[in-house]
Every structure is written in C-alpha cells, then in structure tokens.
Design a protein around this nucleic acid. Sequence first.
DNA 1: TGCGATGCTCAACGACGCGTCAACGGCGAG
DNA 2: CTCGCCGTTGACGCGTCGTTGAGCATCGCA
Lengths: 222, 222
Amino acid sequence: MALVLLSEPDGSVRRFLTGRLEREGFEVALAADATSPVLDVAARDPDVLIVALEQGSDLEPLLRVRQRSDVPTIALLAADLDLSEQVVLDGGADDCLRKPLSPGELAARVRAVLRRTGTRRPATRLEFPGLEIDMAGRLATVDGDVVDLPQREFDLLVFLASSPGQVFTRQQVLERVWKSSDAWQGATTVTEHVYRLRRRLGPGHGPWIQTVRSIGYRFTPS
Amino acid sequence: MALVLLSEPDGSVRRFLTGRLEREGFEVALAADATSPVLDVAARDPDVLIVALEQGSDLEPLLRVRQRSDVPTIALLAADLDLSEQVVLDGGADDCLRKPLSPGELAARVRAVLRRTGTRRPATRLEFPGLEIDMAGRLATVDGDVVDLPQREFDLLVFLASSPGQVFTRQQVLERVWKSSDAWQGATTVTEHVYRLRRRLGPGHGPWIQTVRSIGYRFTPS
DNA sequence: TGCGATGCTCAACGACGCGTCAACGGCGAG
DNA sequence: CTCGCCGTTGACGCGTCGTTGAGCATCGCA
C-alpha cells in the first residue's frame, strides 16, 4: 500500500487527516519537522507528500523538496494564506487544496496523483506497431514472433524505445544503460550492440533504430 | 508547445478559456461534440484534455475517455453539479475545478499535469508554417515530409532559425556553428552549406534562407 | 551597356564515422 | 571440465560528409 508523508503542524488537523487516510487504506507517516519535510522525504521515501502551507510561509519547503526529489506533492493551503493556487502549483506542487478541507476529496486527490505517477513507474510495457516490449517479462515480440534478447541488448532497446524520436549520443547510452559514469567503456561497444540488436529484431517493418551520423542513435516507432 | 483539447459547451466560457490558455502559451483545440470528446481525443491526440461536466451530466464522457486512452484529464465542475470532487476524481480525472473558474489557476493546473505526464514532448522544437525543427530528434519536416540533415546543415539551420529575421555574416556563422574562433575555415564553406541546405529543404513554400548581398544570410518564417 | 564584385553551382578530394567481421575473455550450464 | 553464449574490443573497408577551388551567373554601379 502507498505511503503518504504528512507534514501538518496542527495536531488536531493531523489526527483528523491521518485517521481518514488510514481508513481509506493509506499508510501515513508524519514529518518530524513540519516546516521542512525534505529530510523526511529522503529518509522514508514516500509515494506522495502532503505539505501544509501556513499563513506567512512561503514556497521554500516546496521548492526544497522539488530540488532534491520528485516525490509527487499535494499542498494544503491555509484559508488565510496569501499565496494563490496558481503560484503554489507553478512552484512545483502537483495539486493543492484550500482549507477547510474535505478529507474525502483529499483522499481522492491522493489517489489521482498516485494513479499518474504509479502507473508511470511500472511502465511495464511499450507498444509500437509491429513491436512490443514487455519489460516485466524481459522479452520483445516482433510481428507476433517472440525474440528474447540478452540483457544488454534488451536494456538498450528499452532505453531507446522509452523516448521515441529522441537522439542519444553513445556517451549518454553508456551512462544510462551501462551505468558507467566515466566512459571506461569504449563508445564502439554501443555500436556493436546496436548492430546485434538490429540484426536480432530483423528487417521487420522498419529500421526502428536509426543512426544519426556523428551524433548517435534514435528510435522511431515506424 | 502543448496541445490542449477543450470540451466546453458554453460558447462564452469557451472563448474566455481559449483566449487565456493561448496567451499562456498553449495550443487550444475545441472538441466538436462537447458531450463526447472521445473521438476528438483519438483524432487530435492532445497532451491534456479539459472537459466540462454540466448539471445533470454523469461521468460517462470521462469514463469513455479513460477506457480508450490515457490522456491526462482535467474536469470543470458546474457550480450546481451534484457530483462531488471526490467522485469525479475517483472516476478517473487527474484534477478538477469547481466553477466559477480562475483561468490563471486552470492554466497552472494544466502545467502541473503536464509536468507529471508530459516529458514526452520536448520543448526543444522550432515551428514555422511548413517547417518544423525537432532539435531533440535532430530532424526537420517540410510540409509533413521528414528530411534528415547532416550534422553541419542541421546545426546551421537551427542557428539561423533560432533568430528569425536576424542577418548573420558568414564570419558569425563560422564562429557559432563551426566554433572556429579564428576563421581558419574559408567563408565560402558557409556558402556551400547554405546551398546544400536550401536544396535539401526543397523549393517549399518559401525560400526560408535569404541571402543579403555582401552581408550574409537571414532566416524568415515565410 | 560594360565592368567588378559577390554569390551560386558543380566537381573533386580527403577525412571521418559507421557497419561489419573476427577474436578474446568470462561466466554459467550441462 | 568443457562447451557455448554473451560482452567487449580492435581492425578494416566503404560510404557519406565536410571542405576547397574554379567557373559561371547575377547584381550593383558607373
């Protein structure tokens, strides 16, 4: 179940929201320091952060969290807070509610945020005309035929196919697929793997992986 | 530039929102049938859908959209709509606002949703009537036909198209595209590349690159 | 109208990058 | 223990791109 980190200084509101969220099936953790939840985010790694913005506070806690992680964040705006919803949202919040709160709506907004970020994280399947990639099963199917790829080639395909149309240099590929920050690996390694990957995918309906000369490679759906 | 599909039956509200959203930098498309935007979603493939729920309507349009695509959706709730925010959100909406609307907040919520879902459309994109330049994909499309350009020609095009109407001398082009501080390169090299670039772009709707005699070159949108 | 300068077009050459093949080492399976 | 697959690297050939120079067309000016 999803973990919600709640940063709310007012004790009664905190208990009120905690009870409701737990009854809706969330696991709730409380931020130790309500004014600066950034440390708690790092420590507990929640799925969503709810942070209350009090009268007089600024966007600083929000910005701090945004800088150091990309935990989806819902802001609770005090009734007399002089920041507008627009400002808070543009400050990095994924959603915000003005107090007084409807706890049911808050829970629904948590679910809505989780639906987006949660279904994105296990982007477990990529589909293109003539090519499907099952990241959970680590296998690809070309025109219905299953081809199982070695790890490196599969990772390479997933990386390229995750951003269709994007051109990546060999260095970028090395950093993100090989995870070798300093290119101890030769860049020609990438060339070779692309070669093998292309051969294994076969000359099916399109050279999905195109080379951009003196730059790198690009995946295109068709 | 993100594409927003707006489904709002009331004409005045529609104009009001369209104007504001366009002023905020969004491209706005209007749903042909305000009660059932599902067909428009399939046809136009927007980055975000804004759908108005009127008094008496149910969640049906929302559910239909959710079933057939995963376009992020923001619902606008009529003031007298008897559905709660909670119900609408749990019905699949990513966000919702109760009328009367704050157009600035709506725009901010669109940005917030796009921030989460829309890493797919790179901002590195130049668009002109009949000519689009995808800097991330390193390819240009002329009247819908993709032309992939060699390294130098693409860089040259991007450089010129980044400052439409500006005239650049060949020296300036050499310094900024070729990165050769002291022009070891001959200036005629630029001439040649402009020639090839023009030829590759074809005689499409306009000589985008014009020569300014005894000065240099200039890019104009049309 | 003629002359000079500037830019366009074409051809050719050199260099670089990529595809391809081959070989080697490591690791796990049989 | 041995065999085979996978990951990695080096070498080589070919295609493409970048660059330059020369000839021709065009423009501006007298």
